[in-house]
Computed example of a mutant assay.
Amino acid sequence: MGMLKDDAALLALFEQLALAAGAAIMRHYDAGCEVHQKADDTPVTAADRAAEKVILDGFRDARLATPCVSEEAASGGVIPVCGDGDFILVDPLDGTREFIARRPDFTVNIGLIRNGAPVAGVIFAPARDLLYSARPGAAFEVMVVDGQPDERRTIRARPRQNPPVIVASRSHCTDETRAFIDRHPGAETTSIGSSLKFCMIARGDADLYPRFGRTMQWDTAAGDAILRAAGGMARTLEGAPLTYGPKGGEGLEAFASPFFIAETAPV
């Protein structure tokens, strides 16, 4: 872990850097910035890169030895060896399409992986002044005032409702997603961008989040950590918990995630 003594100190660092990265994003949000396409045809902006720099510089300043896989650096070929120990997954600006469309549902995601499982995470939605933070057994929603954490409340996933509330991606709805919704007669559906879908379940406002589309591990790690701490979980279509770490494939493909269902606590 480098110079940090425990997971509580690491989570505090995650919160601090997520807030600072969010401030960098909002400067670009207010001023506007150009949009470019990456090799995988996904959008990237100066805000993505500025937020990532804040986080990675912060890890270096803290003398953190834990390997970190961060989206934009990884897209440029910088992927550290993770091995079997702890590592960090970072999406410096999740929901870039929401950011470009000037909707408030974009986030900063930082997650800690241990033995293939997400054990701590922070999600900050700077345009909403909302931060979510979790360690094993404890998940929190934090109001942010003037860039600093203020009121902090414990959140918990609710028992599954029938019919359920299903939260779906605004930007990535697929035929499989619509078929999943159809298998739950009477379900209420709602859409929101980025990893805030995990947070809706963790805070007890929704029951299911089906994802039948491409995601990467940095998209899901922080949200999955928060959801697990709140009593839910993201599972593969076969019902197994999502696992994290390099899989088969080269480069970025080693960190691709399977289709999954994020779900609330069982009844």
Rank of each mutant, 00 (worst) to 15 (best):
264 T>F: 06
149 P>N: 10
145 V>M: 08
201 I>Y: 05
159 P>T: 06
266 P>C: 00
156 R>D: 00
248 G>Q: 15
247 K>R: 14
211 R>V: 11
253 E>K: 12
192 I>M: 07
256 A>W: 14
191 S>A: 14
206 A>H: 09
237 L>H: 05
224 D>L: 04
226 I>P: 07
147 G>P: 13
231 G>E: 01
204 G>P: 04
213 G>A: 15
244 Y>M: 11
170 R>A: 08
168 A>V: 12
216 M>L: 15
223 G>Q: 05
188 E>N: 11
157 A>D: 05
194 S>C: 06
155 I>P: 05
180 F>I: 09
162 N>A: 08
144 V>R: 03
156 R>G: 13
219 D>M: 13
204 G>E: 05
145 V>N: 09
209 Y>D: 00
196 L>Y: 00
152 R>I: 14
234 A>K: 09
232 G>Q: 01
148 Q>P: 03
160 R>H: 06
185 P>C: 04
153 R>Y: 08
211 R>C: 15
243 T>N: 12
264 T>I: 02
209 Y>M: 13
236 T>S: 12
168 A>M: 15
194 S>H: 06
248 G>M: 06
150 D>V: 00
218 W>R: 04
207 D>W: 04
259 F>V: 11
175 D>L: 15
163 P>M: 01
229 A>K: 04
148 Q>E: 15
257 S>N: 10
261 I>R: 09
239 G>K: 00
230 A>D: 00
218 W>C: 02
216 M>K: 12
223 G>R: 04
157 A>V: 01
224 D>I: 02
246 P>Q: 03
255 F>H: 07
179 A>E: 08
255 F>P: 10
175 D>G: 01
215 T>N: 10
154 T>E: 11
215 T>I: 09
186 G>W: 08
164 P>S: 02
252 L>R: 11
160 R>A: 10
205 D>T: 07
174 T>A: 12
255 F>G: 03
227 L>R: 00
166 I>W: 08
180 F>Q: 05
144 V>K: 09
214 R>I: 10
150 D>W: 01
206 A>L: 15
149 P>V: 02
219 D>Q: 12
189 T>A: 07
205 D>Y: 00
160 R>W: 02
163 P>R: 07
156 R>Q: 14
243 T>E: 12
231 G>A: 05
191 S>E: 15
193 G>L: 02
225 A>V: 00
251 G>N: 04
153 R>P: 07
167 V>W: 10
236 T>G: 13
166 I>K: 07
205 D>V: 01
194 S>V: 09
189 T>F: 10
226 I>K: 13
255 F>L: 05
164 P>Y: 10
